[in-house]
Structure formats: C-alpha cells, structure tokens
Amino acid sequence: MLTRRAFLRGAIAGAASAFAGAAYAFGYEPLMEPRVARYRIAPRVWPKGFALEIAALSDLHACEPWMSIERIDAIVDRMNALRPDVIVLLGDYVAGLHHFATPIPAPQWARALSRLRAPLGVHAILGNHDMWDDETAQHRGRYETAARAALEDNGIPVYENAAVRLTGGARPFWLAGLADQFAIPAGRRKWNGLDDLPGTLAEVTTDDPVILLAHEPDVFPRVPERVALTLCGHTHGGQVRIFGWAPIVPSLYGNRYVHGHIVEDERHLIVSGGLGCTALPVRFGAPPEVLHIRVEAPAA
C-alpha cells in the first residue's frame, strides 16, 4: 500500500528529476562543445584507390547568447584541426530563435566562417531559415538572400541547383548542391521548394563520383544510385531525442532520416545533428556536432 510519505517522496523525486532534466536541456546541452561525429563509408560506386575526407557543419543558427561569434570561432578552429580535404556547409546559418535570442547579422557570422580552410575549399548550400527569415527573398521567391550574399562576399561559393567538379589527389569528383526544398511556406505544413534534383544532376557531365548536398533529407528517396553520398542537416537530430527516438522531426518521413548514417538500396545518406536550435533553445539527447567523414571504395 502506498503511504502518504512514500507518495510525497516519489513526487519530490519526480519533480527534482524533471527540474534537473529541464536545466540540462536548456542550460547545458545546447551550449556544449560540439562533438565530432566520425563516419567511414564505402559506397559501391566509389572508385578504387581514392579516399576523400570531408568535414561538414549544419544548422549554425547564429544568435546571442546560444551561438555567439566566439562560439562560431571555436567551431571553426575545431573543424580546421580535422585537416579535411574539403569542407561543406549544409545550410541554416541565420537564427532560428526569435523570442529567446538576438540574431547575429549575416556579414558577421559569414566573416567568422571565412576562416575555414581545406585544400579543396569550402562550399555551401542554404537552408529553409535562410529563406524564411529573409523577407525580401520571400517576396521575390528566388535565390537572392542575405545569407548567400554574405557567404559569397566572404569567398564561400553557394550552390543552388548547381554542381562543381573538384580534383582530390589523382581523382576528380563532383559536389552537387540542391536549393532548399522547403524554401517558401505555403500554408500549414506545406512548402514550395526551389529544388531541382534532375536539373542539378544534369550538370554532372563526367562519370566521376558525386556527393550531393541537400539541407533537408526528404529528397533522399529520389536520389539515384549514381550519387555516392548525400549529406543533409535540418533535423537537428530531432533536437530532443529519448532513447534514440525523436517526438518531433521536421521531416515528412518522421524518424526515418532523423540522424546519422542511413543506407537504403546501397545508397548512402548522412544527416548531421547540427549545431544550433530552432523554436526553443533546447537540446536533449541530441548534442551539437560537426561531421568528419572518410569516403573510400569498398574492400575487395
């Protein structure tokens, strides 16, 4: 039989646990030093004798106090220390918090990102918030965003339905960047995308391997096997994840593409947990991260 004293003890313990969990989710995990999530993958279509190391970040959401310029500087230093062959930025640089933070102007966060260094360069795509938070771009329904201008003004090329051929060591490869799939809100849980996957891949004119950059992972079911690896962000790993499951995921596929390395029909996808927050400055079970990926041919 449950006594009054036992009930009170349980209630107090439950309240203390809830308070501790909330303090962790709001005050600690969002401000953690980002971990380096390391992946080693071997797509079937990757050429033998060619290894490529990629560093990636997503969902910066630059704002005070959660993602300050000082914190971005530390993230840049951490990524440079990985010494990758190429660095890719997967979108959502602008603040996703409007009631709990002060946005950092695009020229400032872009200047901080301009210190990133890799032999094959730094390459970027945009995310939904880079469009949503730009009233001028929303009105035009086109690509001329403040985020794109800031990145390009600081020497970082931005790809929206475009591809570029790079040479890593003795073997060239393609980076293909997709425009945002949820670029223009069109009602409750509806968006008009600016993405053009067939048009983007049509720019690939050789049989060299292809790496696709797409902010949202929802495109993945349509990605052909010709693409060796798709890299995405957007989900924040769910931002709150309990025993690996996220109750809210900003994807039409729910938890299917919430985080990590996913293989479907021998096609490879990696979804970053990202760095910042949207809606609320909270992370629980989904710590901030940057990616370090080694791509190589399958073992014989």
Rank of each mutant, 00 (worst) to 15 (best):
G233L: 13
I125Y: 13
L57H: 05
P103V: 06
R222P: 00
A186F: 07
N161A: 09
R148F: 02
A146V: 12
L89R: 00
P119V: 02
W46E: 00
F100V: 00
V164A: 14
Y159R: 07
L57Y: 08
I72Q: 02
A150F: 10
G276C: 10
Q108A: 14
R188L: 11
A101R: 04
Q239S: 11
L82A: 11
I156L: 11
L126T: 11
C63H: 04
A163P: 08
C63Y: 01
P247R: 02
H123S: 08
I104K: 01
V76S: 11
F173R: 07
V258E: 00
A300K: 12
L231P: 00
V282D: 00
A56Q: 02
V227Q: 04
R40D: 15
V249A: 10
A279F: 13
D195N: 14
G14H: 12
T102C: 00
V86K: 00
I125G: 06
A6R: 15
C232T: 14
F284P: 03
A11L: 15
F100T: 03
P209R: 01
A137H: 13
L166K: 12
I293W: 07
L252V: 11
Y39K: 03
V210H: 07
A137K: 11
L175P: 01
I12Q: 06
Y253S: 11
A23P: 01
D207Y: 04
R4G: 15
A146T: 14
G274V: 05
D195W: 05
A299Q: 14
